[in-house]
Amino acid sequence: MDVQALVFDVFGTVVDWRGGVAREAARLLGPDVDAAAFADAWRARYQPALDRVRSGERPWTVLDALHRESLPEALASVGVDGVTGDVAGELVLAWHRLDPWPDAVAGLTRLRRSYVLAPLSNGGVRLSVDLARRAGLPWDLVLGAEVAGHYKPDPEVYDSAPRLLDLPPSAVCMVAAHTGDLAAARGRGLRTAYVHRPDEFGGRQVPPASDPDADLSVASFEELATALGC
């Protein structure tokens, strides 16, 4: 691919959202709570919350606020009848403390030798910065929903990357573990690379091993770097 920049989905593609949220839930809620079930329940409320913003039902709202609003229902689903404000705040910050997949930092470091790298995430700017600082993610800049004022898969998010990087869409490659994200990016003229993340949902949901419509399908960021000659 003749591209100059790679932009990345983050939750599930770069970092392990389920493992990180479950880890923090176990720490904050105690051993009697099914922390993995809580992570799944909270994540199940993620897309519906974004949809209400995308549809215009509610004005633009950053992801941290959406997570805070959906937290009581997620807690109730695992038998927790509310938490203090301090604990609720710490649970929201769990999304800022996620661990990268084992190949992520090494693969990104190789890719950055030849390409501009940026997250193109639904996470807010502060969330993206916190994840990068904690994990050592070598981004050149932060792009995504808060920058564009839209949530994926709104076209404005994908259009923002080439516009802000002063590149044609075909010179930007979207990297994601989710075929729907990649399909939306292709619809805006971006190139695409699929990364297989079989453990994103703890093995309960097994994603396809490849995306036949993507320019590349790989099993890791290290493999992506090799495929791109880095």
Rank of each mutant, 00 (worst) to 15 (best):
D103G: 03
D140L: 06
V3Y: 12
A161M: 08
R204D: 03
E156M: 10
G56M: 03
M174A: 06
L167Y: 04
T84M: 06
V78L: 09
L164T: 12
V157P: 07
R58G: 06
D81R: 15
D213K: 12
W95F: 15
V33A: 09
V116T: 15
A214N: 07
V105K: 08
V62N: 13
S160K: 10
E90C: 07
P162T: 06
A5F: 14
D199M: 13
A185V: 02
D32R: 14
Q205F: 15
D81P: 08
R97E: 14
R18V: 04
W101E: 11
V87S: 04
L120V: 01
R197L: 10
S217T: 08
P208N: 12
F8G: 00
T84K: 01
R191V: 15
W42F: 03
A49R: 02
V116K: 11
P119Q: 05
G19C: 01
C230T: 12
R18P: 00
A148L: 09
R204P: 01
V10N: 13
V206A: 14
D154G: 07
T226P: 00
V218M: 06
W95K: 03
S114Q: 15
P169Y: 02
A37R: 14
H178P: 02
A184Y: 02
L91D: 01
G107S: 01
V7G: 11
P31S: 15
D40C: 00
F201L: 10
A41D: 11
R110M: 11
V147D: 07
P138A: 11
L120F: 01
T13H: 00
L98I: 00
A74P: 12
P153F: 00
P212K: 04
G85F: 11
D81L: 09
E146A: 06
D103K: 05
A176Q: 04
T109E: 13
A184F: 05
D81Y: 00
L224V: 09
D130V: 06
V62W: 00
R113P: 04
R110G: 07
P72W: 11
Y151M: 08
H150T: 04
A22I: 06
L98D: 01
L190R: 10
F38W: 11
T61P: 04
D103L: 12
S160H: 03
A36E: 13
T84I: 06
V7M: 02
A74V: 07
Q205K: 14
L50D: 03
G187L: 03
R23Q: 10
V157A: 02
L120G: 10
L165R: 05
R68T: 12
A135G: 10
R163G: 09
R58L: 11
L167F: 00
M1W: 08
A26T: 12
D154F: 07
Y194I: 09
A183P: 07
V21D: 05
R197C: 08
L216S: 02
P212E: 09
P207Q: 06
L75T: 04
R113M: 04
A161G: 04
F38M: 08
R27M: 04
V14S: 12
R204N: 09
Y158W: 08
D154S: 15
R191E: 06
D32Q: 14
P155A: 12
R54V: 02
L131I: 05
P119R: 08
